[in-house]
Amino acid sequence: MKQDKEVWLRGEHFAGITQLLQPVAHALLQASEELAIIMQNFNDELLWAKPAGCASPGFHLLHISGVLDRLLTYAEGNMLTDDQLAYLKKETEIQELSSSDLEDRCQQQIKITLDRLKNFLPDTLTHPRSVGRAALPSTVIGLCTHAAEHTMRHIGQLMVTVKVLNYQPAS
């Protein structure tokens, strides 16, 4: 599945997504590809392990799915639903799901997010948006960009954590 070039260097344009959000789409698709590689043959017994007190792979997978949904909800000008708030509270809890289930959930949420990006027209990207109960200021493009950036941050953390958990010292 590994490509010779990163998504942003392939010259792809994603139909229906404004040119200004193409970098967001590129980052999300890069995350999707890296996620598939990272989680290949992952041992489910390690899913909730926290090496050196770091967040578990299970948390990263749950969080990526949840944060994409929440940030796009704010970008769309909506407040979070009770279901989204409940999901947020459960992200840190061990769940009875396999790593494959969690990876599939992440991959599906990335696809949903890419579809949601199609709803943002260029003239709406600087519209102000409020984030959270504190109504912190942002914009549509700020939230979309942060969704991609935050996803890639967790993909990087997941990559390192999985490598540490899979490390087998040479004998």
Score class of each variant (00 low, 15 high):
76 E>R: 12
71 L>K: 09
30 Q>L: 12
138 S>F: 07
122 P>E: 08
158 L>E: 01
64 I>Y: 00
6 E>S: 11
84 Q>G: 09
114 L>H: 05
151 T>C: 14
1 M>W: 10
99 S>M: 03
12 E>H: 04
11 G>Y: 01
143 L>H: 06
111 K>C: 09
59 F>V: 03
86 A>Y: 11
15 A>H: 10
121 L>I: 08
9 L>D: 10
97 L>S: 12
76 E>S: 14
160 V>G: 01
119 N>M: 14
143 L>N: 05
26 H>T: 06
7 V>C: 09
1 M>I: 07
135 A>Y: 10
169 P>S: 09
42 F>W: 06
128 P>G: 10
21 L>V: 05
52 A>T: 10
20 L>S: 10
29 L>E: 08
109 Q>K: 15
31 A>H: 06
115 D>L: 12
122 P>D: 04
92 T>G: 08
160 V>M: 05
79 M>K: 15
59 F>D: 00
127 H>V: 03
21 L>K: 02
82 D>A: 14
82 D>F: 04
41 N>Y: 07
68 L>P: 00
108 Q>W: 13
28 L>V: 02
95 Q>L: 13
144 C>D: 03
87 Y>G: 09
143 L>R: 05
161 T>L: 00
2 K>T: 07
137 P>N: 13
62 L>P: 00
27 A>Y: 04
83 D>F: 09
150 H>E: 13
8 W>R: 09
159 M>D: 11
127 H>F: 13
52 A>Q: 14
40 Q>D: 14
15 A>L: 09
65 S>I: 00
108 Q>I: 10
113 T>C: 09
161 T>N: 02
91 E>Y: 02
134 A>F: 14
118 K>S: 06
110 I>V: 12
42 F>K: 02
127 H>Q: 13
54 C>K: 13
30 Q>G: 10
25 A>W: 02
127 H>P: 00
12 E>D: 11
111 K>R: 15
78 N>Q: 15
151 T>K: 06
6 E>V: 11
146 H>N: 10
27 A>P: 01
95 Q>Y: 05
113 T>M: 04
85 L>P: 00
23 P>S: 08
166 N>E: 12
150 H>G: 08
167 Y>K: 12
83 D>A: 15
18 T>Q: 05
128 P>I: 08
87 Y>T: 15
168 Q>S: 14
122 P>I: 02
107 Q>T: 08
123 D>E: 14
163 K>G: 01
106 C>S: 07
32 S>D: 15
20 L>G: 01
